[in-house]
Design a protein around this nucleic acid. Structure first.
Lengths: 159, 159, 159, 159
DNA sequence: TTTT
DNA sequence: TTTT
């Protein structure tokens, strides 16, 4: 019965994370992550293929995402694949997401950097560069909080 | 730019693989794989949560899937996440699949088993229990062959 | 500074686990795990190459190992690489071990099996087939308990 | 029989890679990689624990290591665990190494960087940031070339 | 020392 | 739709 459901990604955020603070106190961050791979096609041309992944981070990870991740941030992420179904225009659709369990920020921390721009990685000493989902075992339970219910809306999907 | 896009699953096939032999000689196997995890909920009850994954195997892996995998087979699988878009009823939909790169069969090979049933794992000595995608680097290219195009049909989606 | 240190193995135990119950109440299980891969050499002959890994399981995982794992058991294991140094015959030596974090038992549970032998996988309904290290975040701390100190002996190494 | 032997690391090189060009034309790069993890101990103090890993890269990967990796470089690495035995001072010793199969360079490529120092990541456009071991399936065979034999010396160990 |  |  027991199985393994593991996803490992290294890529860059396509946008700033969207963070929602739910009623129960939990928070969720969602964003898209691009993983690119290069290969040489039959004609010898260099090609890049990019996949976009829908990422969901809960609680502690969401807080860290909110504080430290931005459009362009490069991260290592470990999580699990989940598929939700939802209704839209009377049609059942499916959304596959990666629910994160561990995250490591991979941007270099520029020493002596001055100024501030959209791509600036954390410079503060209090920035953790590694983080885990609060509840380890109940990775299943972690996915339980119903986003749409908590927000009393059903046209408000993460992806 | 370079990234990592890796999926690791251990689970059971929900059905026998569907295998198609394309015009160019390539073959594709598709099937659903269930990964189950157990946890104890707040009331102390044992719960099982199952995720279903759409798996795609190309060429050599497809051939092995056709020969040795069946409904119920337990496998270890490594691959990458890919999302395709397709039209259905005039609506764009998305299908997320795991394109396999490596596979290991985990069913015990019953010694001296007699008879034959749907769950019988391979007993023949020629059954490889480990296999890889034919083309290593072009994992990207491996995903290129367009299934619907190759079959001249567009209502014929794997999932 | 933050990094990733992850090992994923699927293999068979070479011997029954050795389990020690330390003074503080913690327990440790150690055993060797074989991972085999097959390949065809230049002469077209089928070759098998086996690697042996020193596995360490703490606390909850140790208890499960003690109860359910035996010589021959097939498992999926996730953990991290650690290297210890120790003195032997006045010489500093190094031992590299994999400290487990998650484990899934992969042996088929034979239905209706009668009798009992060394290879029998658990048939009891209370056998968990999936388990995690008790303390999630402190994977580092989990490795802290000093085995030799706890046992007041220094010639008593796990491997 | 078939198993899985996989190591995934994200860390920094402790020194420049040592590269050797063997007689047969193959090359090998060896270096140490540090993976650090932070955790809070019982007294609430922030602690960092670092593990050092012996990395071996063959052929194509060795060439890339030689060109682009330096002391301090941050990389993602995927490989397999191998243990060699060797004699030293009449004593059999064991060395556990990670033979790389895939590598991704994680250093930011500084735009407009001037000058050159030991930590400078590749700035050239021709620097691949992702690379694979040349021979995919024969990961086993890849490890075959005997370093000491090839160099006609036995006191010349990578680690 | 495992497994096939 | 799997597995226990």
């Amino acid at each position: 019965m027991a199985g393994v459901n593991k996803v490992i990604l290294v890529g860059n955020l396509g946008r700033d994370p969207e963070v929602r603070h739910l009623e129960g106190g939990a928070s969720v961050a969602t964003f898209s992550l691009a993983t690119s791979e290069s290969y040489t096609d039959r004609d010898g041309n260099r090609q890049t293929q990019t996949e976009w992944h829908n990422i969901v981070m809960w609680r502690g990870l969401a807080t860290i995402a909110e504080r430290y991740l931005k459009k362009g941030s490069k991260i290592y992420l470990e999580g699990k694949l989940t598929t939700r179904s939802y209704e839209k225009d009377g049609i059942t659709r499916y959304a596959t997401e990666v629910v994160a369990r561990d995250m490591v920020m991979l941007d270099n921390r520029p020493e002596g950097q001055v100024g501030n721009n959209a791509y600036a990685p954390p410079t503060a000493a209090d920035a953790p560069s590694q983080a885990q989902a609060a509840s380890p075992a109940p990775a299943a339970a972690a996915a339980t909080p119903d986003l749409s219910a908590a927000e009393g809306s059903n046209d408000d999907l993460p992806f």
